[in-house]
Design a protein around this nucleic acid. Sequence first.
RNA 1: CGGGGCGUAGCGUAGCCUGGUAGCGCGCUUGGUUCGGGACCAAGAGGUCGGAGGUUCAAAUCCUCUCGCCCCGACCA
Length: 479
Amino acid sequence: MSEQKLPTRSEDYSEWYNQVVLRAELADYAPVRGCMIVRPYGWALWENITAALDRRFKATGHVNAAFPLLIPRSFIEKEKSHVAGFSPELAVVTHGGGEELEEPLVVRPTSETIIGYAYSKWIQSYRDLPVLINQWNSVVRWELRTKLFLRTLEFYWQEGHTAHATLEEAEAETSQMLAIYADFAVREAAIPVIPGRKSISERFAGADQTYSIEAMMGDGKALQSGTSHNLGQNFAKAFEIRYLDRNGVLQHCWTTSWGLSTRFVGAIIMVHGDDQGLILPPRLAPFQLVIVPIFKNDEEKAAVLANAQKVRAELVDAGIRVKMDEREGMSPGFKFNDWEMRGVPLRLELGPKDVAKGSVVLARRDRPGREGKSFVPQAGIAGAVAGKLEEIQKSLFDRALEFRKANTAEPDDYEEFKQAVEKGFALSWWCGSGACEEKIKEETKATMRCIPLDQPGGSGQCVYCGQPAKEKGIFARAY
RNA sequence: CGGGGCGUAGCGUAGCCUGGUAGCGCGCUUGGUUCGGGACCAAGAGGUCGGAGGUUCAAAUCCUCUCGCCCCGACCA
């Protein structure tokens, strides 16, 4: 709650982002470098994200469980590319109960290993498969450089871990979860995402195949917003996750893992936010509508509040998340700005004139000023509000998609490619070689974000080396 | 770890070059007037000037060291 103007999104994106997070009261910096304190408002947003995802997980037969925070160091070392990928960023516990531990424990950076250990005990027969488990938890990765929500030392997420009898089933699971993430992003968060496959260099440490959903932020950079991995038999072999098949033959399982983290909150901020602050998609907003009562004296106050309570009750009954702002000693104008900064999608103003007319003023967060205001009769208010919320949800998505299209180019020529990744995405033919990928990164700072599942068809020449290429990749600078 | 910037009240900052009573805005407290787009007046409370050492009669200010934060790279969800 500050009267100072936010830095503008176009001029100082990083500063703008930090200020939005801080002033909207989503989170604070913690005393430990790289950690954040998630405030109630930020957590409420995350809870709505978790609820929307959890519904989808349950609907596809997944269940939740919990696994330990501390993992024996030797577990991490069992899968060779896994240890190579995670070693540099492990937090290690060396002492416990006042004594040095015989074997150090690592604070989980992800739980493939400890869950692999559990699965090896649980799974004996093909009848035990598939195992479809998810865990809501936090993990720790000692990142060199951090940013609120986007890359914190400790972050909250869900990690799904499944075991299957065949590669095909595991691959189907991997695709299904990627599709669920994409559906969630589009329908709940109003964020257009590109589902695709990662290059070898961008793969999860220990995976045979990594898929992700990629979104474009307000500055044209890419953000990996959710991932789904086909782990093949790598962890099954490292942890002896085996089953007897129908023919009595001992087989290794095929496993998957998939996750979406509090980073997604960062995506929502950067995709939808504007110079007034946060704009939350109605489906996920902690408060979908804020009521600001307006009055001059006690007489008006009594009438307005009574009327506002009635309106509020009707909206709550209709299942709308409503906040009544009854704070004393603040002008309506202050409250308007305050809630705009916090991203509440719809504001309902109710003053003496409205009481007299039996109407209210609705103001859309995504349309600043007069344009977004409308006078609405109190009769049937719930329907009108629900309709507006739908409109806002849709228009946020349309706007974000529009922005992505406007900043996505399909260059065949490397010079054009270099310009394209300066401001957004480049969708270009790529021969698939890590060498080209590496060179492009060195020369332009852009990385191969994903090979979209949805390919244009045909073939062309690699934008870097000119060799024949069968697929197009999304190249962009990334968070 | 390299390059840049910064640590002064809860937040944002001036003062530092040229040493001498620590200032301003917001927020907070109390009272009053306000209230349909960030209200106003009055009276208050709030400070180890990031830390340590040094120079000096005297250090926020000068010197040395140190700690921390932010931004840009390397690492990464």
